Computed example of a mutant assay.
Amino acid sequence: MHRWSPLNDRQRELLRRLDAGEEPGVAWAERLSAYALRDRGLLVVVRRGGAVRAEVTGAGKFYLEHGHHPEDPRYAAERRETGRKTPTPYSERPVGRARRAKAAELIERLVAERRVVVPEHDEAAEAEYRRVIDYVKRHNLLPLGKRIEKLRLWNCDLRAPSKMGHIQ
Rank of each mutant, 00 (worst) to 15 (best):
P143W: 00
Y135D: 15
H69I: 13
A54M: 04
A127S: 12
A54C: 13
A104D: 11
G60W: 02
R12M: 07
T88G: 02
P161H: 08
E120H: 08
E149G: 01
R130W: 07
E126C: 06
S162C: 08
Y35A: 08
A160N: 11
P89C: 06
L151G: 09
L151M: 09
L158G: 05
L42T: 01
K146R: 10
P6W: 03
V45C: 11
R130E: 11
L153F: 03
E23R: 01
A124W: 09
R53C: 00
A124Y: 05
R47S: 15
P6S: 05
C156M: 08
V132Q: 08
A27K: 15
V111E: 11
V45A: 05
R16E: 01
L142Q: 01
E78G: 01
A101G: 03
E108Y: 00
R31Q: 15
K61T: 14
N140Q: 14
A36S: 11
I133Y: 08
A77G: 08
R131S: 13
T86R: 01
A51S: 12
P94W: 06
D72F: 15
K163Y: 09
R114Y: 12
V26A: 10
A20F: 03
E81F: 11
A124S: 06
A101M: 15
D157A: 03
A125Y: 07
A27L: 13
T88S: 08
V52Y: 00
R53Q: 03
A27D: 11
R109N: 09
V117T: 01
E123Q: 06
V132I: 14
R130N: 15
D19M: 14
R38P: 09
T88Y: 06
P94K: 07
L37F: 11
L42P: 00
A59K: 09
L14E: 01
G58Q: 06
V46S: 14
V118M: 03
A125F: 10
K85N: 08
A27G: 13
A98W: 09
E92K: 13
Y35D: 13
E123R: 03
R74M: 04
R38L: 12
R16W: 00
V26T: 08
R48S: 11
L14W: 02
I107L: 00
S91R: 14
W4P: 05
R130C: 10
G60M: 04
I133P: 04
P73Q: 15
Y135K: 13
D122Q: 01
E65M: 08
G165E: 01
P73S: 05
R79V: 04
S33V: 02
R40W: 07
R53N: 02
Q168C: 11
H121N: 05
A103V: 10
T88H: 08
E120T: 12
